[in-house]
Simulated assay, not measured.
Amino acid sequence: MGTLFYDDARFVLDDRLLAHLQIIISLKLRRGESFFLSWKSSESEGEGRNVIWIDNGVPLRMRFDESATPKINRAWAETLALSANTNNGLVITGESIEPADEPEA
C-alpha cells in the first residue's frame, strides 16, 4: 500500500492504483487543470467517500511501498482519465479490465 500526501493529509492507496493516478494527475496538472479526486472509504473508515480538490498550488507527493513500477493497464488509465474530465472529477473505480500483453521487442 502506498501513500498519497496532499497538503497536510495522507491517504493510503494501493501501489497499483497510485501508479495509475500518478499518470492522470500529472497530465491534468501539467495542463493547468484542477479537478476533484474521489473514492469510497473503506469499511473501517465508515463506508463514506472522500473528495479532494487537486490543484497545482497544493503540495502533492506519492510514496510507493514497492520499488518496482507496476504494469500500467491502458484501458483502466483511459477510464480514469475520462472521468477526470467530468463535473464529478476523477472517480476511482476498480480495475475491471485486464491489461493487454505488451508486444515483445
Rank of each mutant, 00 (worst) to 15 (best):
E95N: 11
Q22G: 06
A105C: 08
E78Y: 03
T3R: 06
N50P: 00
D7L: 11
D7P: 01
M1Y: 04
N50C: 09
F35E: 05
A19T: 12
D55Q: 13
V58Q: 05
Q22T: 13
L29T: 13
N85W: 03
T79K: 06
L13C: 03
S34I: 07
W53T: 12
L82E: 09
I54T: 10
G48R: 11
R10I: 02
L4E: 03
P99L: 08
I54C: 07
S38C: 15
G89K: 02
S44C: 01
A75C: 14
E104K: 11
G46W: 11
K28E: 09
I52F: 03
V91C: 03
I72N: 00
S41P: 00
I72C: 00
I92V: 07
F64M: 15
I25V: 09
D8Q: 10
T86P: 02
L18Q: 07
R31P: 02
R10K: 15
K40G: 14
Q22R: 14
L4Q: 03
E95V: 01
L29Q: 14
R74Y: 00
T86D: 05
E47V: 11
I92A: 08
G57W: 05
D101A: 05
N50W: 12
R74N: 01
L37N: 09
D101G: 00
R31V: 13
R74G: 00
G89R: 04
L82A: 13
D55E: 14
T3K: 11
A84N: 03
R16W: 02
P99N: 04
R31K: 11
A9C: 10
L4Y: 06
K28I: 08
G94C: 03
V12S: 07
G32R: 04
G94W: 05
E33W: 13
I92W: 01
I25M: 06
E33G: 04
P103A: 12
E102P: 01
G2F: 02
E78P: 00
S96G: 12
P70T: 15
L27H: 05
M1V: 07
M62Y: 01
A84T: 01
P103S: 11
N56T: 15
V51W: 03
W39P: 01
F64C: 12
S41M: 10
D15A: 08
S26F: 07
P59D: 10
F36L: 12
A75R: 11
T93A: 04
E43N: 07
P103E: 03
L27I: 13
P99V: 06
L4D: 01
A81L: 06
A77R: 09
V58I: 10
